[in-house]
Design a protein around this nucleic acid. Sequence first.
DNA 1: CGAAATTATGCTATATTTGGTATAAAATTG
DNA 2: CAATTTTATACCAAATATAGCATAATTTCG
Lengths: 109, 109
Amino acid sequence: MRADKRKELEATGWTVGDASDFLGLTPEESAYIDMKISLGNALRERRKSQQISQVALAKRVKSSQSRIAKMEAGDPSVSIDALIKSLLALGASSMELSKAICNADSQVA
Amino acid sequence: MRADKRKELEATGWTVGDASDFLGLTPEESAYIDMKISLGNALRERRKSQQISQVALAKRVKSSQSRIAKMEAGDPSVSIDALIKSLLALGASSMELSKAICNADSQVA
DNA sequence: CGAAATTATGCTATATTTGGTATAAAATTG
DNA sequence: CAATTTTATACCAAATATAGCATAATTTCG
């Protein structure tokens, strides 16, 4: 958001922030969530680049399509373990995982 | 191990390898395990550098001393989620986590 | 457009992870 | 050395994550 637009909104009584502001998350909590989202995005990208459907990936990692969808969405019910195992199953390197986690930093508003 | 020593052992009928060779782990499985070990080491280092006991850390992250010990040991019963949450609670940055995961690569024999 | 494929969302029984506790082993300190 | 602190290991009930399924929503494509 442009700084001037933010000022304009705030002048009229709005508060501008992100989900963690709104929900009152601690920095650790939002860092954790950002990591999941970042890993979820990496999973989706890797899957798409291999032209595989969620169903096919589910079969590969012995999971279900619904679970893959939730992984990619960073759903609260999915663990980072699940995300990492799936990424590894798609051939991601430690370095790629490392980058995804590092990228989580730049998810901040 | 020195290459000549390995050759010497192999000449006498020994097979030289690491745990993943022995247990017949897939590359993904051992990559996952290496990551846990690496994160466990990072946790221990960070805790020690802050001069905190496992008991104190347990209190901080609302867990138990036994669980912290297992985290640091990379025990199969601990999730990467737990490791990451504890590291974040000790003030580790995404970058530091990223490095730990990346370092897992160099755990290979 | 309409059919087919893909993805999202909700639910639940099962499996795994967790905190807590107990206690053993090891390290530290006096 | 003994006492104390710290860490490791084992167990279990409770909490959480999971696969699997149903089905709705969305996208793709003829």
